[in-house]
Nucleic acid binder design. Structure first.
Length: 191
DNA sequence: GGGCCGATTGTT
DNA sequence: ACAATCGGCCCG
């Protein structure tokens, strides 16, 4: 489990090259990264990512599998930007765009190490992440929403499993999570 | 324009 | 097991 007193410099940011790589690798490497958000009252909220899933262009479960549409447009754009989509009539989900520009791909942020932020819909609801953040550049510190590198995570601390809530390509083990973290439910962690 | 489905969540 | 709730996408 992550400690309660991690020390990270939130002004540090990723380079675009980090995200311009194969999506599954980026997903694995994003475990422990710090999601940061500057709210309208100037207060900064931050928490470490503890659960993610990868979605690629050759993946039937990926929104961009059937090509470029208005919704999937940002997934074809520059890596390191946010892909935020609306689902089930009431929830937003946050993704980070991956792969070189022109190739669609994204990492779904499913949970962060913060009470009540387990599950992609709950995370966005709690943080106030909506469609207005779609396409936002996550590489710039002190923008409204950005990502900052976290402490090194041992590979032995990262679990792998099947993705949640999809009906196609369910056999792919493209979900990564921090073992023993309370925000990753036990049921989700198995399989 | 119609109808079905969904990368979710909370309740029964 | 199922309801809430609505935009996206496929079909025609």
């Amino acid at each position: 489990m992550l400690g309660s007193f991690i020390v990270v410099d939130l002004s540090k940011s990723y380079l675009p090259e980090f995200f311009a790589r194969p999506t599954v690798k980026v997903a694995r490497d994003l475990i422990g990264a710090v999601l940061c958000m500057q709210h309208s009252d100037n207060k900064v909220q931050s928490a470490q990512i503890v659960e993610v899933e990868a979605y690629t262009k050759d993946d039937p479960a990926c929104h961009a599998f059937r090509g470029r549409t208005k919704r999937t447009e940002v997934m074809f754009g520059p890596p390191g930007h946010a892909y935020v989509y609306f689902i089930y009539g009431m929830y937003f989900c946050l993704n980070v765009v991956t792969e070189p520009e022109g190739t669609p791909g994204a990492v779904l942020v499913r949970a962060v190490d913060f009470a009540g932020c387990d599950g992609p819909g709950k995370l966005c609801r709690r943080w106030g992440i909506t469609g207005e953040h779609n396409g936002m550049n996550l590489l710039q510190p002190d923008s409204q929403l950005w990502l900052s590198p976290g402490p090194q995570i041992r590979s032995t601390q990262i679990g792998v499993g099947r993705r949640i809530g999809i009906s196609q390509a369910t056999e792919r083990r493209w979900r990564f999570f921090l073992k023993d973290n309370p925000m990753v439910s036990r049921q989700k962690a198995s399989r």
